[in-house]
Design a binder for these strands. Structure first.
Lengths: 187, 187
DNA sequence: ATCAAAGTGAACCGATCGGTAAACTTTGAG
DNA sequence: CTCAAAGTTTACCGATCGGTTCACTTTGAT
């Protein structure tokens, strides 16, 4: 009952979609890269869209888990952990396979706001926002919601800037800005 | 000698790519939407990639022109114009056809940093950076380069956040943050 | 009036797209 | 051992992909 093949497919599909994009990665290419038969894929997922949605769910869990744990590991207080988010981002950007944010890509290839893939990408961002807002609250900072939104603008900006590659130190720039914004919200 | 058809093709292709994405917009769809024959398209552009590069050049000119003029119209001093960038963004986000930044989309569909389309998208961002740095210099603000990079992180963040649609007021949030960053760089 | 440049429509190319069908093999729990 | 679930290979479907070819028409300057 262990979904060995299904999980394996999801993980490998995630990598393939992340490397090549969604529209640019056909099901036949997925067969070639995963070694899993197309028939088997379509037994687990009725359509490519369903596969993509499942991949995004996996990535959401994977990414939030990683980011939250990294923020906890790098700092001890809620306030410091907010700042540590940008150190974690810097680690991510430094990975050789870094290719930006999968959810931004997804919303960019499935643009209609009513599209399930677009909606699910927005959900991921909402979860991040509520976590950062919580942290800002626990840190006793003023207007935690507003501060969280500002910090996340810096995060998203750093993510696309790091991918575009026209700037050298997006994570550090974002961190410097974040420190100043935190000061302005000091309790 | 006026490139009537060529220009018309570029403008309509720009709209089509912006609405539907690059990979998702085939040449046949372009024929259908522009009313221009495929033969004629391939007389002006050797490949789809060439077409896309020309579309991005057009968009670069169009967008920077619009943004710079809007920033000039909305405020009188360099310092105020830096802030006015976020008012201009808010106007852009409010357009019903708003679908994010074409260059972010392009770099997301053509991910390899060495790909001409990716490079050209990075060039666009570089031009914006140098303009904003100039403004920060003219405003007599400290560390104009660093400040410009921070403001542009907010801008890129607001652009993707406005497209994801999970937040109500990305432009205003970015503006509030920008005001605080400007204060920290006061001369 | 002429002639080349620019544009057109339609058919066509091999490759790939998302998805299906059929017949067969592997595997693990009762 | 048995039997169903899960996985496999292979071939196939109509549609679309980027791109080409060919025969023809429109247009504007000389």
């Amino acid at each position: 009952m262990r979904p060995t093949k299904r999980g394996e497919l999801l993980q490998k599909a995630l990598k393939a979609f992340y490397r090549n994009g969604f529209n640019a990665t056909g099901m036949d290419k997925l067969v070639a890269e995963t070694g899993i038969s197309k028939t088997s894929m379509y037994k687990h997922f009725r359509t490519k869209e369903d596969l993509i949605l499942a991949v995004l769910r996996l990535r959401d869990e994977q990414f939030r888990n990683w980011l939250y744990r990294r923020m906890e590991a790098l700092a001890d207080t809620p306030r410091e952990r907010l700042i540590a988010m940008f150190d974690a981002l810097e680690e991510w950007f430094a990975e050789p396979e870094y290719k930006g944010c999968l959810f931004i890509k997804a919303s960019s290839e499935f643009q209609d706001a009513s599209h399930p893939i677009h909606k699910q990408s927005a959900d991921h961002k909402r979860l991040l926002e509520s976590h950062v807002t919580d942290l800002a609250e626990k840190a006793g900072l003023a207007d935690p919601g507003g501060l969280a939104r500002q910090l996340l603008l810096l995060k998203e900006g750093a993510i696309v800037t790091a991918h575009l590659g026209h700037t050298e130190t997006p994570a550090q720039d974002a961190k410097v800005a974040a420190l100043r914004l935190l000061k302005a919200h000091a309790g």
